[in-house]
Structures are given as structure tokens and as C-alpha cells.
């Protein structure tokens, strides 16, 4: 075993400036399963925040917290199953496991962010993985959004058990996803690319009775 730790890394912008066609994992689903319009009767509204930047941070909480605070301006969530956000609500950090956090930032920022985080972390024993292409984020809102979730997941989504600022990885339908509640009336679902079509169709089916509409 060498005493030296390899600190070099290959970092390249996965989304170059040139116009390369890029599509959300749900693009085919929209085409195939359709996008029911939002109407007056819609009591659940689905909106995708596609092409956002997703980074997985792994390592010790203290060293990562310092770096994230320095680069993003807010720290890691201190408790399990919680998330922190900046004032605009566009950037968030979520606890996934004792040594793993998910950072979501607006699309296009992730490359620069990863670079700055790596600079701030220096030689610390950590890992950063850009998983933007592997998952997508959808938002559910509307008065029946919680009921739709109750039909789909065994996790308790009652406001008492699931306050604002909580986020968990759990079972959803026959797949799994990250379920989070950044604000009072909005729920966010982080879907894996491979599950996206199945979960989209599941949500449309579960939301049919609430006249679910897809925005955007």
C-alpha cells in the first residue's frame, strides 16, 4: 500500500456549450403516455424540473460541511432524513446516509460547483459524483398530492411524521425513489432514469381520479 493517496481526478463538463440534443428521462414517456393538461378540476399538478445538476457527496460530515458552506453558502443538514436549501430554494443538500449527501442545483451549475468543491476539499478523503444524467426531479403539488403519495408509498406522509424539510429514500410503487418535502404544499420526487417511465405512468394512473395535470 502506498502512503500517498491519489488526489488527481478527471473533471470534464458533461454538458458542453455547443447545442447537443439532451432530453429528460421522461421525454419518451411524455411522447408515449401523454401529458394531461392542467385544468380547473386538477387537484394534483405534476411538474418536472428536468436537467438539474445532481451531485453525490461522500465523506466525513465535518470536512464536507465546511466545503459546502464555503461554496454554496449553507451547510449540510445536521440530522438524518432532512434537507437544507438556500433562500431561493433552488439549491438543496439532502442527507442520504451517514456519509452521503445529494446536492441539487439548477442545470448547468454542477460542473463549476464540483470544481469549486474539489478545490475547497483539497486532499480530504471524499468523493464527488455527478449523477445528473442518472436521475430527474419531479414536483407534485395540489390539495390531493399527499393522497396520491399515500396510495403509492408505505412511508408515513402525514404532516406530523413528514414535516417540511424532510427527505427520505423509500419504496414507491414497486420501485424506489427519494421523496422530499421542501415547502408546505410541494413534494419533490427524485426518480432514477431507469424507473422514470414506470413511475411517471404509475403517478398518472394514481392521479387520474384527481384529474392530474402535467405542467410545462
Amino acid at each position: 500500500m502506498s502512503e500517498q493517496t491519489a488526489t488527481w481526478y478527471n473533471l470534464y463538463d458533461a454538458r458542453p456549450q455547443v447545442e447537443v440534443p439532451a432530453e429528460s428521462p421522461l421525454a419518451w414517456s411524455y411522447h408515449h403516455s401523454g401529458r394531461p393538461a392542467v385544468g380547473e378540476k386538477s387537484r394534483v399538478v405534476l411538474r418536472e424540473r428536468d436537467m438539474a445538476g445532481h451531485l453525490i457527496l461522500r465523506g466525513g460530515a465535518i470536512v464536507l460541511d465546511e466545503a459546502v458552506r464555503q461554496v454554496l453558502g449553507f451547510g449540510l443538514p445536521g440530522r438524518p432524513n432532512t434537507l437544507t436549501r438556500d433562500e431561493s430554494g433552488e439549491r438543496s443538500v439532502q442527507w442520504l446516509s451517514p456519509d452521503e449527501w445529494l446536492v441539487i442545483v439548477p442545470g448547468g451549475e454542477e460542473f463549476a460547483l464540483e470544481k469549486r468543491l474539489r478545490e475547497a476539499l483539497g486532499d480530504a478523503h471524499t468523493a464527488i459524483v455527478n449523477v445528473s444524467g442518472g436521475q430527474t426531479l419531479i414536483e407534485l403539488s395540489g390539495e390531493k398530492a399527499r393522497e396520491l403519495l399515500m396510495k403509492s408509498t408505505p412511508y408515513d406522509v402525514h404532516p406530523e411524521a413528514f414535516p417540511v424539510g424532510k427527505g427520505v429514500t423509500t419504496v414507491f410503487a414497486k420501485a424506489n425513489l427519494i421523496l422530499r418535502r421542501p415547502t408546505e404544499e410541494r413534494w419533490e420526487l427524485v426518480l432514477r432514469r431507469s424507473f422514470a417511465d414506470y413511475l411517471y405512468r404509475w403517478i398518472l394512473d394514481a392521479g387520474a381520479e384527481y384529474a392530474i395535470g402535467v405542467e410545462g
Binding site: 440530522r79 438524518p80 432524513n81 446516509s97 451517514p98 408505505p154 412511508y155 427520505v168 423509500t170 419504496v171
Partner: peptide, 11 residues
């Protein structure tokens, strides 16, 4: 003990 809460057995 890591999530510090009760979870469904399915998980």
C-alpha cells in the same frame, strides 16, 4: 439505527 427512525420492513 442510522436513519434514527422506524421504517417499513420492505426496505
Amino acid at each position: 439505527p442510522y436513519c434514527e427512525e422506524h421504517r417499513e420492513e420492505e426496505e
